[in-house]
Design a binder for these strands. Structure first.
Lengths: 204, 204
DNA sequence: GGAAAAAGTTTCCTATAGGAGACGCAACGT
DNA sequence: ACGTTGCGTCTCCTATAGGAAACTTTTTCC
């Protein structure tokens, strides 16, 4: 076995500074203190080592995702707080109905979704505006369905909200509705023009 | 140096199964595919190695928090999705569908809140429409502050959103904003008439 | 089909994450 | 002062994360 493979020289992780700066450790320590736990107790609860937790809190290590997830659970830390770092604005958005390119736009034959505040990746609720294309009323061969809850607010147009367990609901501007999005649902515009709807979705 | 410290025998990470199962990798791969990126491109954008990304997607590694955070940013993955795994309880019982009725009314000197979908008590998000009364601009002696996140959508009027950590943000109809509501915040209507705002709040 | 390019996987290597336990250091009673 | 106890840090060690490049597979042209 030759000592060095000549040109290959696996260099490893190299530089890669931690952009979090001093934030992550501090937040975790604060959260632990808040709950009145000692290193020992917190580490035990999260099933990690006492020393590991100490290093994390002192920013002496770049912990694995798994470890952080456990700590979050134990300390009941909300994910957004952890991901909002390095002065990244917690406030974003600011937008008219105009869409702003990139991958924030999703279109199907029925809907035209535009995510709001998509620059903020760490949020738990997902707000978006959908244009429901005017079309003939047909039955739903496949419901929209996704684990969580959803709030819907009609901005313009007239539409009918079909749901799996309830009677269809005719809605107009200003009307709103709240439902478990695990229940099949779907909208049909009944006005001449497309209907615009604001949705806020919360995944479980 | 003695060979083995007898009883100490640093054992290392030991078992520690990955509770994520096969989920994490799949979600990241899906997200990448969705954006039409190759391993090379995605890895580059996230400033990580191609091989690393491959291993992550195939669940052959337990990536660091830092790496995951970068990927989330690059792939615009929402954090909640990533953290959903530990068979967390379903949520939302039966009466999970409700339409806005009247709703409760809460009035302060500045705001006039009307809860939406208030018949449904089991919901996690709280939507309401507020009328922000036109008044002189004054500084905020006490911020509004409550643990959680908030999404705000301007329905009508012009207003300025003051926040504790960011510059004031002038907003008009159609504008929206998302923030950690633990950060102090408050609105002032700057138009002649009152401003109307739709808020969706998620308590922690 | 076959060559070439592109995409993805595996190998190989170093740096390091993370656990066990030693150590440091208060704050106490006695 | 001296244990003693409880909390946090540091040392030491193994297993492994993650990058570079080799390798394999898939796709694309001709």
């Amino acid at each position: 076995m030759e000592p060095i493979p000549s040109e290959e020289t696996g260099l490893g992780p190299e530089a890669m500074e931690a952009p979090d700066g001093e934030i992550l450790g501090k937040m975790i320590r604060d959260a632990r203190k808040e709950k009145g736990l000692t290193l020992e107790e917190a580490a035990r609860a999260a099933a990690i080592g006492r020393s590991t937790l100490s290093k994390i809190e002192n920013n002496q290590t770049r912990p694995s995702f798994e470890i952080i997830r456990r700590l979050m659970q134990t300390l009941e830390l909300e994910t957004p707080q952890l991901f909002v770092q390095s002065g990244q604005s917690g406030v974003t958005g600011r937008r008219d109905f105009t869409r702003t390119g990139l991958g924030e736009h999703k279109e199907t034959s029925t809907y035209d979704h535009e995510l709001l505040c998509s620059e903020l990746t760490s949020k738990r609720m997902v707000p978006y505006i959908s244009t429901i294309k005017a079309r003939d009323v047909t039955e739903f061969d496949n419901w929209v369905r996704h684990r969580g809850e959803e709030f819907m607010f009609v901005l313009s147009g007239e539409l009918i909200l079909y749901t799996e367990h309830y009677r269809p609901l005719r809605m107009g501007p200003g009307d709103s509705v709240y439902y478990d999005s695990g229940m099949g649902h779907g909208c049909v515009s009944v006005s001449e023009e497309d209907a615009k709807v604001l949705w806020v979705s919360l995944e479980v």
